[in-house]
Amino acid sequence: MHQHTMPIFEKNTIEKSIVEKAIDWHLHLHTEETTPADNIAFEAWYQQNPEHLLAYNRLENMWGKFSDVDHAAAKAGLEAVLKSGNPTKTIARHGRSVALGLVFLISTYSAMQSQPALVWLAENKTPIGAQRSITLDDGSILMLNTNTALDVEYSNHQRLIKLYQGEVFITVAKDKTRPLIIATQHGTARALGTQFNVRLIEDSENSTQVAVVESTVETCTTPSLLSIPLLNSHKKTCITLQAGQGTRYTSNQMETASNINAEAIAGWSTGTLAIDNQPLPMVLAELQRYSMAQITFNENALANMRVSGVLPLSNIKQSLDILSGKLPIQVSEPQDNVIAISLR
């Protein structure tokens, strides 16, 4: 009777009025009560013109597509992508200019997905234990700490630095026409002034830490884009930090500003680690960031020891020796690339 095997892309363009009539018939036959008279009338129309036949069969083809899918699940899947605010829907309406917006969304989306790939592809990197200073096009001085990876994207309307891993300290050159923004997967730190530190902390919580040495910085969370349909349900949170203040944030949460020793936090940029009464295991974990060799120790055994002082970051072995001079611990090298700290 009616064929169901027409290929989709045919060259014939059928007049709109014929398609409208075909839709009319299709809906009537599929969704409404029909009489024998209806069927006869339909057959007559169907056979009258090859274009009637073609238009109708195409509609049958489209209609039939739903047959092989689980209906309830299909509805869930389709409604999820069709809901307003969905980036693909915006594309259909606005065309090329929004394509760029979508591409930006995708790149931020992918940033959520795979930091290792972004780290791998980054243009500016430091290996473990190394530090580097870059002077940017606008005169800003960007210092990279150990094991850091970032990209610099300056444009006419903004100065963007994407930090994928590690820590930077920046002295921002004044440019009223372009804000300087350091972005991580968690959010942005935007400079209205001159000197601040940004660190991506990769522990169980995975957060970004900002410390301001001079002037003002505005930090904002970037809500996770992992669930595109939920795009509208996450709002960003912003706070303003003054000199001597710091915060930590994840994509969903911003800590309130707290008073911190910004100079100490940014001390690495002058090659030193300033410690104020910290537990030894924490200090060792921090030193590990700068050491290719694995620093091993029993956390419980050393937990009660506290450290204060200034340690050189350019020579970790030397720093550990300084510590063993202050505390009842000994430093040994049981094998290549392993440094063991134990009770004396």
Binding site: V69, A72, A73, K75, A76, G77, L78, A80, P87
Partner: peptide, 16 residues
């Protein structure tokens, strides 16, 4: 765009 949309559909289809 097609890939992102398809992944989205797949996620919701499977959940449902």
């Amino acid at each position: 765009i097609d890939l992102v949309r398809k992944r989205n559909i797949e996620q919701h289809y499977l959940e449902a």
